[in-house]
């Protein structure tokens, strides 16, 4: 009996991510959810710009590559033109929380019936580890070698807290993938975000606290410890908004 194997929706190719990068775990969770809901044939994914720019190579469903930060706008167009299809975006923090902030906020405010998977690893990974809008106060990056000075660079943006103040979005949750327990909780949240779209409920965003061992300068193991000790206290996990929380129980 097979207990665990690669999901069908995940392409059988090597991933280009650095050793220990949790993008691979989150790709797999999304693919598992696509498998379980049986929606691979009608799912359209929107890839971002960033480390996961080549996500279109890794999912067996249809994929579109969007301009930097514009994935929710592209997803809006696809979903409105093809309302029977399931549309998700997969975006990093440099993509969603920086250049794509307007698209993110407005698609949430319009309650577009799309699913957004937001990977927050507090750094720009692909371009070599610059400070991101989500970098923690005091965090050392290529462009903040003495640590992020909040008097000069401002404070990190907490996307879930911010979007949950809007009337628009259906579901906003933050999860992490630093241990087995959190990975399983992350899958539940991602599944709910896709189910909401299948049920026509509207905009669902799942923020996944991820790691970047290479640009944090840590081993994969230490990077996950850093997620636990530094990231999660600043970005508390949980469901920030769920308009149909009672009816789902």
């Amino acid at each position: 009996m097979v207990i665990f194997d690669k999901p069908h929706a995940l392409a059988d190719v090597p991933l280009h991510y650095c050793p220990g990068c949790t993008h691979g775990i989150i790709h797999r969770l999304v693919a598992e959810v696509i498998d379980e809901l049986g929606i691979e044939g009608k799912t359209v994914g929107i890839a971002p710009v960033g480390c996961s720019v080549m996500a279109y190579n890794y999912f067996n469903c249809d994929m579109i590559e969007a301009a930097h930060g514009r994935a929710p706008a592209v997803a809006t167009g696809v979903k409105r033109a093809l309302p029977e299809n399931i549309v998700f975006t997969y975006q990093g923090d440099g993509d969603l929380a920086s250049i794509g902030m307007a698209e993110t906020v407005h698609s949430a405010a319009r309650n577009e019936n799309i699913t957004v998977i937001f990977i927050n690893n507090a750094i720009y990974g692909m371009t070599g580890g610059q400070m991101a809008p989500t970098s923690l106060p005091g965090q050392i990056t290529q462009t903040s070698p003495y640590g992020r000075d909040v008097n000069h660079c401002g404070y990190p943006i907490k996307i879930c807290e911010m979007l949950s103040t809007l009337d628009g979005p259906e579901y906003v949750a933050r999860v992490a993938v630093n241990n087995v327990k959190n990975v399983r909780a992350a899958k539940k949240a991602i599944k709910k975000a896709f189910e909401n779209q299948v049920n026509g409920l509207g905009f669902s965003l799942v923020e996944v606290i991820s790691s970047c061992p290479t640009n944090w300068g840590l081993t994969p193991e230490k990077a996950l410890e850093w997620v636990e000790s530094k990231m999660i206290p600043y970005y508390p996990l949980g469901v920030y908004k769920d308009r149909h929380a009672d009816s789902n129980e």
């Binding site: 009996m1 207990i3 991510y17 949790t22 775990i25």
Partner: peptide, 19 residues
């Protein structure tokens, strides 16, 4: 023991677990 914790944490999905 076939708990699949290894496969759950593998970022590259290289582990298949059977029982």
């Amino acid at each position: 023991i076939g708990c699949a914790f290894c496969a759950t944490m593998c970022p590259d999905c290289i582990i298949k677990v059977e029982k």
